[in-house]
Structure formats: structure tokens, C-alpha cells
Design a protein around this nucleic acid. Structure first.
Lengths: 191, 191, 191, 191
DNA sequence: GATGAATGAGTTTTCATTCAT
DNA sequence: TATGAATGAAAACTCATTCAT
């Protein structure tokens, strides 16, 4: 029931936004009462924090697995891009909430999430820096800025990409990987 | 006074979000009463629409100037990237509202804005398609998808880039242009 | 209208207690809406503070007048006792709220009221001390403790005394003055 | 466990008031669940009634012992004053609840408690009347009113007296007995 | 142009109580 | 005896909007 509340609230948050979604809206979708909601969550903000925590924790765990498993820096980067974009299929809605609603967490919680977001970003930045060192990526790149560019590409796709359309998640990942790589690869040649 | 209301509301919308900002919050910052607000705006949503309209109209106008003025497709693309990123300096706050709060427009108005957004996007898509045709860009690219990638890079920068930091708007534009070009340019070589 | 809200809320607070009285209860008695209440008061606690402030400020002002006007310490004390008890007639309800509900003020406000209560008490204590000095009252008394005893007598009367019964406010004051005096007067003889 | 619930609830009622204390607050202090509470008490009001009943029954029993044991009316009165004030030490918290929260009993129970309060008061009134008859106290006193004065003195002390301060319960009783006596005693002379 | 007062519908949250296990 | 989950009613408070002046 708690997980049902989370699931439905995510859909509503995507559709109407966090502030514009009322507890009443949420409980109505599964036919329980507001009291029930507050049995499971201390507050509306606590629910939002729950959503954010689970999402980024899961993402970080899988990112670490990739970094431990893949061999070349290029492969690592490709896998991370696929990780983010691949999620649109199963967790697109959560992702949209995650990218959009962090400002409705109270400062204390926002700081925790921002810390984890930074860790996720730092992992990419380090990956780029090491790839440059290893001559896999272009020397003149600034890892920090390129990291933001890559995240812009992947994260923005949550705003427009419909995985049920004619383009699959796999195909989009491939295109974006190609786009990113042949901008940062030390040789400028395409495949 | 109307423009003062717009200016202050933009700041508040950035800080707290549209839903979480009350008319009272807005009028308090300039020391007038709610009645005054309703003399100038029909509703809270009308104010939001006003902000959206001016922003996208201005952007479209400048984009068209670029498309009419610049020569090569490469130069056109570079200028459009600079247009978006350069705006962070003077209109960063409006941009953040524009990217974030469209879902609080009523459907009728949202449709208008979505139309103009699509026009802005289509212009880039067309530019890419023509660039491919003209052999300036790689043949195998899908203009529509690459457009989203480019917009991801530029629009996402509104979320993190601080133009008062050590990196200037000019420098960021240059880096991103380079990053984009040498991923889409038919020759893979960097400058 | 603001004063009407205060008046009715006092009656309800006496009857049901502060916590058990809802804003709805209050506004219902004068047929306005909750919104109106919150236009005039920032919160329920602010209303309670308003009641407390006015009551004690008025009391202190009148106590000071007495201390400045009356001649002997005995007369001053009698007048203060009459002040407190006499108020039951016109402000009995406010007094009952004042004595009972201070713990529902937020700490910040409670401290202010406690300060003024202490001032009122200190004035009596000083009066007693000076009366002892002047040989009007018994030497062995501890002014501080006797002050509490006197306040106990007068304040407790708000809990049981009905000024519309067979005993008038004047008569009660006289009885209590007599009771107090011939316990503290240096001669133990009654009149 | 039942007695533990009573003990902790008394502390909370003193601190926050009956209405402002939730069942959750109570059970949290001893680490059980609300269900447990309702195994032991039919309702929140039943708990309050339990507290009131035990307190006044105990007080009445001890008052009767005093009335049966002590010889002179003066001694009886002194012992009753000591009884009330002495309780601040061991049962100060219950007393504060008892004086303050009677209005949260349902009418049926409030009537029972009011009856017992009246009995306690009547015993003092009778004691005074007999003392007057026996020439121990002043003829012109109205026993009923003086009873309220005495109760005012003693009961009010629950609002300010800290038995852990520099003044002991014994000392306070002595002072108040002296204060009361040499106001009502037929001879006006102090000890 | 601007204000002050009011509204009504809605918001988040609390809480005494119940009950199957 | 005790718990965990749920309820329903009500609480305090907010807020976009209106309107007479």
C-alpha cells in the first residue's frame, strides 16, 4: 500500500507537478483516506524525499557496478549513457519527478540529494578525466563542463522522449553515444 | 509597475516555483496590495503566460535574425547556441521559469507556447537537415534527435551555469559549440 | 469586526477552552468565514496573544494609577484588591482566559506576558515591603509569599464568583480586604 | 503499565494541556502503541476521569481522617491547609491537572467530580462555621466566602510554588496558616 | 489606479478511535 | 495483551479572486 501510494503519486507529480498535486488527489486514485497516507508518510515532503532517495540511490548503485565492470573508458561512458536513457522505459516518470521537483524538498533533504547528484556527476567527470589521461578522449576538453553537456543530453530526453514511439531506447542510446563520442574522442573520425 | 510585478514574480517563481508563490508574496516584494495586481493582470496564470510569451517571442525573433544573417550552416548553428547560452546572463531567471513552469499554463495557452517552442526547434532541425544536405554535417545523423541533444546541452545549462563564476558565457558557448560540432561535423577532426 | 471576533472568541474560550475552540466555532458565532478571521489575525495564537496583551496592559495601567493616587499602603492594597475583583463584573471572561490559557501562547509571547505579570506582582510585593517598613503591616511577613497568597484569593475568585448572584463585587472586595488586612495588619484587632 | 500510562499522561497534560496532548504523545513516552492504550482505557476522557477520581478520592479520605483526628477547629484547619500544600511535593503534577482540566470531562463525569469538590469545600465551610460557633474564629465571617479565599491561597500555590526551591512545603504551610489564622481568629493578635 | 475587506474552496495535517490478527 | 493499519471527521491555515470605495 505504501508502494502503491508512491507509484500513483509519481504519476500525478509528473502530470500536474508536486505543488499542484494534493494528498486528496493521491489517495483518491487508490481509494483510501488521507489518514492512511499520513500513517505511511510523515508529510507530503517526506514522500517526495522517499522518491528522490530511492531513485538516486538506485542510480548510483548501478553506476558503480558499471564503473567496476566495464573495461575501457569509452565503454564505461557508453554504459552510463545507456543507464540513464534506458531508465526512461521503466522509470521515466520517477526520473521526471527527480529532475523537476528537487526544489520542493526542505533544505536539509535537498542537501542530501544534491550531495548524491554531485557524486553521480563526479563519477562521470572522473571517468572523462581518466579517459583524457589514457588518450581515449580529446586533451583540450574540460571534464566538468563536458559532464554537464552529457547530462544535459541524457536528462533532457526525459522531457520529450516517448519510449513507446518508433524509436527505441536502445536506438536513442546508440545515437547519443555516437553523438557524444565523436565529439570527445581523440580522433575526430566517425565510425 | 506592471513590469515591476513581472520582474519580481520571475525571481519568486525561480526561487519557489509558480504554485508555491502566492500573489501576496509577489505584491509584498514591491509593497502594493493584491487589488493592484488584479488591475494589471486578469489572473495569476495570465501573468505566467505574459512571461512565457515575451520570452519565446523574443527568442524566435532573434533566431530568425540569425538564420537570415549568418552564412554557413555551421555559423548559423554556432550563433543559435550562443543565443541560448548568452541569454543566461541577462535573462537566466526568465529562462528557468520558461523551461519549468509551462505545465501551469491553461491548456489553451500551453498550446500556443508549445507551438512556438516547436517552431524554434523546427528551425534548428531544418538547419541541421540543410547542413547535412550541404555536406557540412554527417550524413547519418537524424536531425530531429540531434536537435533534442543540442537543446538538452544548452537548456540544461540554465540549471547549473552561473555566469558570474570563473567561466564566461562566451567561453561556455565556445566549448559547447566545439563539443557539438566535432560530433556532428562530417570531418571528425578538431580545430 | 476584529473586535467582534475577539469578543466572541473570549466567550468560547471560557466555555470550552482555547484548544477545544475551533476557528470555525468562532466565525460561526458572527456569521463570517474563516478567511475573514485570517485577514484580521495571523493565527489563532495571535488572537490569544492579543487578548492577553490588552488585558494585562490595561490592568497594569490602572494599577499604576492606583499606586500614584492612593495615600496609605493600606489604601493602595485595598484598591488593588478591588481592581482585580471589580473586573470580574465587566471583564470576568477575559480574566478567566488570561489566567487559564497562557500556556497556549508560543514561548516568545508567553515570555512577554509573564514579564508583565511579574511587573504586576512586583508592584504588590513592593507595596507590601514598604507597608511593613512603614509599620502598617506585620514585620515578620515575607512580601513575596504574601503577594502570592493575595493573588491566590483574588484570582481564584474568577473561578467561582458570579457577580450576578446575591453577593456584589463591592461586598466581596470588602470581605476579602478585611480578611487580608487583619492577617497582615500589625495590630491583629478587627474593626 | 496502566499506571505508567497514567503517570506519563499527567506529565504531558501539565506541560501541554489535555487537549493539546495526543494519545500518540502519551504512548510514545513509554514506547507502546495506541492499541495498547485502548486496551487499558475506554477513551482519552476515561483516562482523565481516572486521574480526577483518584486524586479527589484520596484527598477526601485524608481530609476526613484529619477532621476525625485533630482536636480544635484551628488545628483541623491548619492540617487541611498542610494537606493541600504538602501534596505539591508528591502530587503537584496531578493537582495541576485536577485544577485545570475538569472542563474536558464529559458532563456526566464532571458532575461527579464537581460533587466531590463541593464535599471537600463543604467540609471546610462546616469546619469554619463550627469554629465560629465555638468562638475560635471571628463572628462576622461568612464561612462560604472565606472557604473560597482559603482554597484560593492553597490552590493557587500549585501555579507558582516549587517545592525544590529554598522554601520548603512545611515552611510555606506555616506561613499560610499564620496568614489565614490571624485574619480569621477572633483575637487579632499574632503568635 | 489602488486599497481593504471579505469569500469559498481547497490545502496539509492531526487525532481519537476501531479492529483483525 | 499488544500491534499495525486504517478511518473519518475536523483542525489550522492558504490563496486566487472579487468588489465597493
Amino acid at each position: 500500500m505504501k508502494s502503491e501510494l508512491i507509484k500513483q503519486s509519481i504519476n500525478l507529480f509528473v502530470e500536474k507537478g508536486f505543488s499542484a498535486t494534493s494528498i486528496q488527489d493521491i489517495v483518491d486514485t487508490i481509494g483510501v483516506t488521507k489518514g492512511s497516507f499520513y500513517y505511511h508518510f510523515k508529510s507530503k515532503e517526506a514522500l517526495l524525499m522517499d522518491i528522490h532517495s530511492h531513485y538516486i540511490d538506485d542510480l548510483l548503485r548501478r553506476q558503480n557496478t558499471i564503473l567496476d565492470t566495464e573495461k575501457s573508458h569509452k565503454d564505461k561512458l557508453m554504459a552510463v549513457v545507456e543507464l540513464i536513457i534506458g531508465d526512461i522505459e521503466k522509470q521515466g516518470a520517477v526520473g521526471r519527478v527527480y529532475f523537476r521537483e528537487i526544489r520542493h524538498l526542505k533544505e536539509e533533504n535537498a542537501a542530501i540529494i544534491r550531495g548524491k547528484r554531485a557524486a553521480f556527476r563526479d563519477n562521470i567527470e572522473t571517468l572523462l578525466a581518466e579517459g583524457i589521461e589514457a588518450n581515449e578522449f580529446r586533451k583540450e576538453l574540460q571534464p566538468k563542463i563536458i559532464t554537464f553537456a552529457i547530462l544535459g543530453i541524457t536528462n533532457w530526453s526525459y522531457q520529450w522522449f516517448n519510449p513507446e514511439g518508433s524509436l527505441s531506447v536502445k536506438e536513442l542510446s546508440a545515437m547519443y553515444t555516437d553523438f557524444i563520442l565523436y565529439g570527445i574522442h581523440s580522433s575526430g573520425a566517425s565510425n
